[in-house]
Simulated scan of single mutants.
Amino acid sequence: MNEILEKIKQYETIIIHRHVRPDPDAYGSQLGLKYILQEAFPNKNVYAVGEPEPSLAFIGDLDQISDETYKEALVIVCDTANAPRIDDARFNTGVALIKIDHHPPVDNYGDLNYVNTHASSTSEIICDLNREWNLNNSEINTKASRVLYLGIVGDTGRFLFDNTTTHTMNTAAKLMEKDFNRNQLLNQLTERDPKLLHFQGYILQNFNYDGNGFCSIKITKDILEQFNLEANEASLFVNTVSDISGLKAWVFAVDEGKEIRCRIRSKGIVINHIAAKYNGGGHPNASGASVYSWEEFEQLASDIKSVI
């Protein structure tokens, strides 16, 4: 932790990245770190970059910067397990690179790598770092508290997932002391365009449950066209089937054109080693993978069934 702080102190320009297809924790950790550093070091240039996700635009704005900005910059990547998933390929054009993450460390791509797999989220880690660094007297301002709280809420499923610990709850409680409208934010986090609810109805009528604990959902390109959806919009519904009685693991597959992106979830069964076999990885109970044909998808599904 202290080595990271010393690196931050050495550079006048700091650029913060996160993963493609960002979720609330990617946004929360990235922007939370930006706001903390801006307050602690008002003379530094601190940027957060990446392709915006429209459904999460309410969380905060990202920066547009030139290639020139990287020449003397420290780059920090939040919430990203492996380098190919980093949003904006310019991440490796800075002077130094730091990784801060809570996923299993399959790719230590940074010059400094801080990974805590016991943390519920990278947003939780950012709170821990600030406390250790004693920046701003270890206080987190309202602007940063707001986004970090959303990051923790997102990655714990509103504190329902088993990655929620007493430390997670204490960290969230500290953030909640700040004056921001939590109910409004949580409503925004779950609001959906009406067309998406029609799509959710399609999922509920067309999931494939085998009766032995495994469920699969296949979203082909023609289904995306039928509901006028982008692939990232479809992926919001990965947990639609999670309440099926007896369900132990499921895979939600979306044909994104160049690949079929598979989001794998489970209840207590370790599945990230299977995701790693198919060009992916992640947490023991929540991972992502990529296959390149529906035949390969069936093999992935078979492998998940085998661990059930």
Rank of each mutant, 00 (worst) to 15 (best):
Y35F: 07
E68M: 10
C78V: 14
A40F: 08
F41K: 00
F58H: 07
V77C: 10
I36C: 02
K34M: 10
A57C: 01
G94K: 10
N45F: 03
A96P: 06
V75S: 07
G28Y: 04
L97K: 10
F91D: 04
Q38H: 05
N45W: 03
L62F: 12
E53H: 02
C78K: 03
I65Y: 12
V46F: 04
L37K: 03
L33P: 08
A40H: 03
D25Y: 06
G94C: 09
Y70R: 03
I86R: 10
P42E: 10
N45G: 03
G50A: 05
I98Y: 13
I86A: 11
K71M: 12
V95I: 14
G28N: 00
T80E: 04
I59V: 14
D87M: 03
E51N: 14
I100K: 00
A26W: 05
E72F: 12
K99V: 04
Y47W: 10
A40T: 05
D63M: 12
A26L: 02
A89P: 04
L33W: 06
Q30P: 12
L97F: 08
I65T: 12
D61E: 11
D61C: 13
P52W: 15
I76S: 08
S55F: 02
L33C: 01
P84H: 13
G50W: 00
N43C: 10
D25E: 07
G94F: 05
L74G: 06
K34P: 15
A40I: 02
A73H: 01
Q30I: 05
K44A: 13
I59T: 02
D67Y: 13
A81C: 09
L97V: 09
G32R: 04
E72A: 13
Q30E: 13
E53S: 14
V49I: 13
S55R: 12
I98T: 12
V77S: 08
V77L: 04
Q30Y: 06
K99T: 04
E53P: 00
G28M: 07
L74Q: 03
L33R: 11
N43M: 09
Q30T: 05
N82V: 11
A73Y: 10
A57M: 11
E51G: 04
Y35R: 03
L33I: 01
I98V: 15
G28R: 00
A89K: 15
L31K: 04
Y70H: 13
F91M: 06
I65K: 08
D61P: 00
P52H: 11
D67V: 14
I76A: 01
D23W: 11
V49K: 01
G94E: 01
T93A: 05
S29Q: 05
E68Q: 14
F41V: 02
A26Y: 04
D79N: 05
K44V: 11
A83F: 06
R85V: 00
L56V: 03
R90T: 09
L33Y: 05
S66R: 07
Y47D: 08
D25K: 01
K44Q: 15
E51Q: 14
P24C: 09
I98M: 06
D87C: 12
A81M: 07
A96D: 06
D23E: 15
N43K: 13
E68L: 15
D88L: 04
G60F: 02
E53D: 07
Y47N: 05
C78P: 02
P24N: 01
P42H: 14
D88H: 06
A26D: 11
P42D: 06
L62D: 03
E39N: 02
